[in-house]
């Protein structure tokens, strides 16, 4: 185990009943870097995130966060430190402020309106949205609020699941800039799932390619332009413009 890595996986498998979703995955995510996680639907990418956030545990193998077995962390502390923003951006009914307050209230603390407004500014949203009902937000605004809410816990590792998949070009650019900003300014390790291979090449330092529950290839983000693995070549073919 090496402290150079934020997350390390050793022969990790996860099954849901008879269904094998993650198959013997070994690899690591570098600390302080942005890693793009790509692969077709059903590759097990979201399940991998749920494993790293501790929402589920591996059936076999070991996951380590900063060289410490994930099982040794107190679950609530682990989840605050390994932030997860999912594609569906689930919101509690009520205002944006109520949703931003959620992580703090779970820890028995309060998030002031000023702090909440700063968070909105950080994710390129107008602070006037604070009082708006989440039901009235656009898809892009919802995703940004979801990221802002995850940032309330000031995680050292951030897992972002297809957060730009349903966004327009402008919102996508905003999110891409935000990811780079959070990574550079706060040194947060970011792993994000994207279907856009151009995006993965441009934004990420590293890339993981998963297919059918297996880690097929990993390395610098440029690997997608010249992959070694035949399956990855096939996958990348036609996806690059």
């Amino acid at each position: 185990m090496n402290t150079e890595y934020a997350i390390e996986l050793e022969n990790v498998s996860y099954s849901d009943g008879p269904l094998k979703i993650i198959k013997n995955v070994s690899g690591s995510f570098r600390k302080g870097k942005i890693t793009s996680l790509v692969g077709p639907s059903g590759a097990g990418k979201t399940t991998l995130f749920r494993l790293c956030n501790g929402l589920i545990s591996p059936t076999h193998g070991t996951i380590s966060i900063y060289s410490k077995n994930i099982q040794e962390y107190e679950p609530t502390k682990l989840r605050r430190n390994v932030g997860l923003a999912l594609q569906n951006a689930t919101m509690l009914q009520g205002t944006v402020y109520k949703n931003l307050q959620l992580p703090r209230s779970l820890a028995g603390e309060t998030l002031t309106e000023d702090e909440a407004a700063d968070l909105l500014t950080k994710v390129s949203l107008d602070k006037d949205l604070l009082k708006r009902n989440v039901g009235d937000l656009s898809g892009g605004q919802r995703q940004k609020v979801s990221i802002a809410r995850t940032l309330v816990n000031q995680p050292e590792i951030l897992l972002l699941d297809e957060i730009t998949s349903s966004l327009d070009r402008v919102s996508t650019n905003d999110i891409e800039n935000l990811i780079e900003k959070i990574n550079k300014e706060n040194g947060v390790t970011i792993i994000w799932i994207t279907h856009n291979l151009n995006q993965a090449t441009q934004i990420g330092d590293d890339t993981w390619v998963m297919m059918n529950g297996e880690l097929i290839e990993s390395g610098p983000s440029s690997l997608l332009k010249n992959p070694e693995n035949e399956k990855v070549k096939q996958f990348a073919k036609g996806d690059f413009i």
């Binding site: 956030n53 929402l55 679950p75 609530t76 502390k77 989840r79 605050r80 932030g83 997860l84 999912l86 569906n88 689930t90 509690l92 959620l102 992580p103 779970l106 820890a107 809410r149 995850t150 816990n153």
Partner: peptide, 16 residues
Amino acid sequence: KEETELILSLGGTPKQ
């Protein structure tokens, strides 16, 4: 279920 997992993922306890 999604709301329950959201709260857990943000560091909430099962009771919360």
